[in-house]
Amino acid sequence: MQVVIGWEEGPRGVRPAFVTDPASARGLVFDERCTQNLVPYLSPRRTHVARLGRPAVVVKGCDARAVAGLVRETQLKREDVVVIGVRCGGVVADPTSLEALSPATVSDRCPGCTAREPHLADHVVGEMPPPPPAGSRRDARIAELEKMEPAARWAFWQEELGRCVRCHACREACPMCFCERCVADKTQPQWVESSPHPRGNFAWHVTRALHQAGRCIDCGECERACPVDIPLGLLNRKLAQVASEQFGHVPTDDPAVPSPVGAFKKDDPQEFIL
């Protein structure tokens, strides 16, 4: 391998590092601030990274699911990347924050994590730290929203999605948004209006969430990238609940497990169909 993509100390917290010189590898770190998922840097769109050569990427268990997802969907050949796994006890929501991992600072996706051991990795480093706190704020929030009247829920999302300026940072930072040309950038025909008005924003966020149904590996990068703090993780998580409850699918770092959207069972639930 010619470049190791890992984390290093930056001017503010940790940040992605690209090590091409073995001597600098000592600068790599892993701790509870290593929130960023580094798998997006494997995307062929990152021509400036690809130029460095054959990559090795450091992954937490949750990030490893992104590598598996890319392999599953034939976007990446497993043998083209060296995967270095780290055992994880949860990370903070904001990698630039100086606060220690606690129930208040932990990333929304960590409580109850089942992917702390990166099975897919070629090399696994570190001892298993204690698990992150249990109890998901996010699932509680979803349940709360579902109890609301549709009109109130609509109003909530109009407020949240209404802040969207259509920068598409959510897409660019997502390891699983791998399309060479996104449907939202296509103009002939134009399915998704590019304007950040209620119509365009609704179409975009439905499209993004739906295209990630069963594909999202719950790394939270979309929500972290969003400059206006839209709670995108709620949409992803909601669809993950559907995948799990209706189709028995949970995100995994086993590339052999099929995607719940690409597959079907003859007796899938269909109560919603007349």
Binding site: I142, L145, E146, P150, A151, A152, R153, W154, A155, F156, W157, Q158, F202, H205, V206, A209, L210, A213, G214, L235, K238, L239, V242, A243, Q246, F247, P260, V261, A263, F264, K265, K266, D268, P269, Q270, F272, I273
Partner: peptide
């Protein structure tokens, strides 16, 4: 069968959006 799964996700999503 494929459509059924896709619309299961879609229906849940848009209803969650209100």
């Amino acid at each position: 069968y494929h459509a059924r799964r896709r619309f299961a996700f879609f229906k849940e999503l848009v209803e969650f959006l209100g």
